[in-house]
Simulated assay, not measured.
Amino acid sequence: MDKNEKQIQSEIASHIGRLLRESFGKGPQSIYVNISRPFIVIYLRNFLSPTEKILLQQDQVDSVRHTRDLVMKSLIPEIKAYLLLAEMNIREFYYDWGFDNYSGILVGMESDRHSLLYSPQEWYAGKEELHGEMEKISQQIQKKPEEIRSYLINERTLLVVRTGMLISLGKELIRLGFEESLKLAEHNLERRHLFNNNQLQKIFQSRISDIFMDWNFHLDKSVTVFILNPSK
């Protein structure tokens, strides 16, 4: 990584930290920015405000998630505008929280034009097996994805993009205005399947520190991020 790239990542981390601190009263302790175009993956650690901590102790996870969703809706346009300064034209934006670890992930995806120009590492050991497991989980919850693609952003960050999983029931729930409820149900089910899957650790040959997931139902697309802790 050249000095300029390190500087850009550092500036993005600083800006995101300030935005989150101003919006939540407390920013993350650590922010790791990884640019592997057409993706930018921002991993947040130790991110929890005192109020949120109290709510989580009272099992109010859904309330904390709902409040963060409202705040993120106002922050995403500002984050996208700032990333334009790094010459990243973000078309899609995903995020999720790991309340058990006080962690979080932000994922930006550039336009299709940029997807053709850049190619992050798409080959890695265990790729076929991982796709097989993701396919099984998708089938148990909705249906087999029309496409699965995955990218090793760095040795600790693996990103999986699935498209074409929504069944008619899901589409109707979205049409009736139950998108938030559908996303919460999907999140809970998928998180349970992924965290209880012993095969994943064998596939990665690494301990899994965090798993994040988010959906864009209008594009029928899902993004999953695995944070790995490879043994040296």
Rank of each mutant, 00 (worst) to 15 (best):
I79W: 02
D100K: 11
D100P: 05
E110H: 06
I54R: 15
R68H: 12
I54T: 11
I31S: 06
L84C: 01
I79D: 01
H15A: 03
F39T: 05
L48N: 01
G108L: 14
D69W: 09
I105P: 08
L44E: 09
V33P: 07
F47S: 05
R65T: 11
E52C: 06
S111Y: 15
H114T: 14
I40V: 15
M88G: 02
Q60C: 09
S23H: 06
D59T: 08
V71M: 15
G25A: 02
R91Y: 13
S111I: 15
G104C: 12
I54K: 15
Q57C: 01
R68I: 11
I105A: 13
K80C: 01
S63P: 01
R45F: 06
Q29L: 13
Y32D: 11
Q60R: 14
R91M: 10
I16Q: 00
S103D: 13
F93A: 05
F47I: 05
V61M: 05
Y95A: 04
D112V: 14
L106T: 08
S74H: 15
M109H: 03
M109F: 06
E78H: 05
I42C: 09
S115T: 12
Y94A: 01
I31Q: 07
D59H: 14
L85Q: 09
E87W: 08
I31N: 04
E92T: 09
Y43R: 15
I16T: 01
D112S: 13
Y43V: 12
V64C: 15
S30T: 11
V64D: 09
M72T: 07
E52Q: 10
L70K: 14
L55V: 04
S74M: 12
H15F: 08
E22V: 05
H15S: 05
V41D: 06
D62C: 05
I16A: 00
L75I: 07
Y32G: 05
V33Q: 07
L85R: 11
E52K: 06
Q58Y: 10
Y82P: 04
H114I: 15
S103H: 13
V41G: 03
S36G: 09
D69Q: 11
E110I: 07
T51Q: 12
K26E: 08
G17I: 02
N89H: 11
I40D: 10
N46I: 07
R45P: 01
S23C: 02
K73D: 13
I54P: 03
V61S: 08
S49L: 12
I79L: 04
R65V: 10
A81F: 00
L20F: 07
